[in-house]
Nucleic acid binder design. Structure first.
Lengths: 114, 114
DNA sequence: ATTACATACCTAAGATTCCGATGTATTGTT
DNA sequence: AACAATACATCGGAATCTTAGGTATGTAAT
């Protein structure tokens, strides 16, 4: 669902961060939230999302609980303790990377500006 | 040379932008410049750089000229006209992506802040 | 009635992109 | 003599995403 090939590597961080803020979310909800927040500019494809969720679960970052909602099955994901630690790690990794990117691409750039 | 798996997708932009600022650079020089600018935090691996350069050349974004410097062969790359257009395109793509990322990851964020 | 869209899950093949290892060759340092 | 730095390159493998498909329910439009 995304025209952008830049998400690579940051999808996990996005998932973890959204779950930090929302306690529990299901897959489809995540795709919609991202679409909302970016006004349709970033669309998480299902082919990327579900494997990523399964991987994070296998790594012990997430737990799931399945719930029936109006004849529809929903699989809710939430952070484990390890997952909560991982959010901070992944976030500072990403912020530092974005900072470095600015230093490369924008010689005028100083921390404090976009 | 990189501990970061987040470069994915932005390496081309980095190459193009550096060449916009420097007119002509050779491969090794690019790795060193990036290392300098990020204080060693981002290291472009040769296994990533050279294929990327060759691809950009094949796509007509870059031209090369080989030069002998103190018994060492250097392959200088510079932007073609298409390459110059591509820099702007790739840059605004990346900036917009970073903006969207901030909107997802930092609900407090407003354009104008990191 | 059928099509289409939204909700909700999933997988599999293929492409892309990067990393790590390895190779060649020269020069300078220890 | 061995190692680090400069400078190019390729190849196998890993990781990650896209495209396309599949299943299933409910609702709105034609």
């Amino acid at each position: 669902m995304s025209n952008n090939n830049l998400i690579k590597g940051s999808l996990q961080t996005i998932i973890l961060k959204l779950l930090e803020e929302n306690e529990r979310m299901y897959g489809y909800e995540i795709t919609q939230r991202v679409k909302e927040l970016t006004e349709g500019e970033i669309k998480i494809t299902e082919g990327a999302l579900y494997p990523a969720l399964h991987k994070l679960e296998a790594e012990g970052m997430l737990t799931t609980e399945i719930q029936q909602v109006e004849n529809r099955v929903r699989k809710y994901y939430s952070l484990t303790q390890d997952g909560q630690k991982e959010v901070s790690a992944k976030m500072s990794e990403l912020q530092s990377f974005v900072g470095n990117l600015q230093r490369i691409l924008d010689p005028e750039w100083k921390p404090g500006l976009v």
